[in-house]
Design a protein around this nucleic acid. Sequence first.
DNA 1: ACTCAGTTCAAACATGTGTTTAAAATAACG
DNA 2: CGTTATTTTAAACACATGTTTGAACTGAGT
Lengths: 209, 209
Amino acid sequence: MTTKTKILDAAEQLFAEHGFNGTSLREITSRAEVNLAAVNYHFGSKRELIKAVMSRFLDVLSPRLSLALVKLCEDETPPTLVEVFTAFVEPLLHLNDVKENGTSNFLQLLGRGYSDSQGFLRWFLTTQYPDVISSFVNAVKKAYPKLTREEIFWRLHFTMGTVVFAMSSSDALIDIAINDFDKKTDISDVIKRVIPYVAAGVGAPIYKM
Amino acid sequence: MTTKTKILDAAEQLFAEHGFNGTSLREITSRAEVNLAAVNYHFGSKRELIKAVMSRFLDVLSPRLSLALVKLCEDETPPTLVEVFTAFVEPLLHLNDVKENGTSNFLQLLGRGYSDSQGFLRWFLTTQYPDVISSFVNAVKKAYPKLTREEIFWRLHFTMGTVVFAMSSSDALIDIAINDFDKKTDISDVIKRVIPYVAAGVGAPIYKM
DNA sequence: ACTCAGTTCAAACATGTGTTTAAAATAACG
DNA sequence: CGTTATTTTAAACACATGTTTGAACTGAGT
């Protein structure tokens, strides 16, 4: 276990829990049991560390996801919206195989990145990982051709919000659900529940303004 | 214009822009053109200031919203989900009459509160303003009786996420939309677009697990 | 054994944070 | 007016932040 990955692991966990602004380098290095200066030595700055934490996920998620979406569109018959969103499940849950709590951590980080340090994550995704987004838009377009690009733009951002938000607070929600409804629930249940929701949202009848 | 309201106004604006953690008391007091110590003198602590900023909105929003939802349920015929969510529009836009940028600021603050300082806002809402939530749940239950309480729980949190998230980044999104699609867009357009989305989401067919 | 790049380490740095203090200024009241 | 109470002010406090420094250590390669 190298110093670099010890830092990444600790940072990932703490960033997910307390956000980027809410986590100090000292907390990270002390949990990672490395020297404080190691972060700046190995990553240059806190900002670069954040990018590195995100990239570690996106580099395994992004190609898998693009592939699944493209594959879905190859069929003669257009996919349903539920199928489009279901295409996210395997790549997302695969993150759990790569790293413990991978899926949950990643989705929480996504949420943090959207609200912390405004717009940084949006820039990061659109510039560093544009393939995923475009293949996603294409898949939606194919599933629901009547949607204008403008409408798709808005609904995809709503969807991003729904998912990211649901996931960034999923731990708290799961706890409540377990207490109130008395059945074991985990991240994959939440994913299964959110799919019909966003599919219906994106597939909503078009509102005349 | 008292010192207290000068602080509240400045804090509201800055909290909405940069989040609670991301805004220092010095930024607030310097924009408000008051002394640094005034915050602790008038509010006691930063945390109490945050509560005060939120309460100023919630105290005018909450009764209006509860009333609208209860009224909607008084009818013999059950409301549609679109009607339920449309009931939010007037009370929300009314915040613009009370204060410039009121609607937008409030929705952004809601988003900040959810991701900053984990779970604080959820506690604040559920303990301090439970009427709104219960009348909301009732309205949804009446519009879509087949939904179990568990399903409602999840879908309402998804909806919270959608709205809060869409709004907390609405300024950025509106800018993109204006550039890319070349038509003027403002917060009320976003609200109008999000309603069919969340109504469809909450009204999605029930998934068998 | 010596060198030298790569890495770790304790310490300091400069700056920013929320909060407190005690004196000064202002307002309110008899 | 004079005497309270309220509010404002500048300064300091104690601590946390990201970053930098320069010396110590490590492990190959020659």
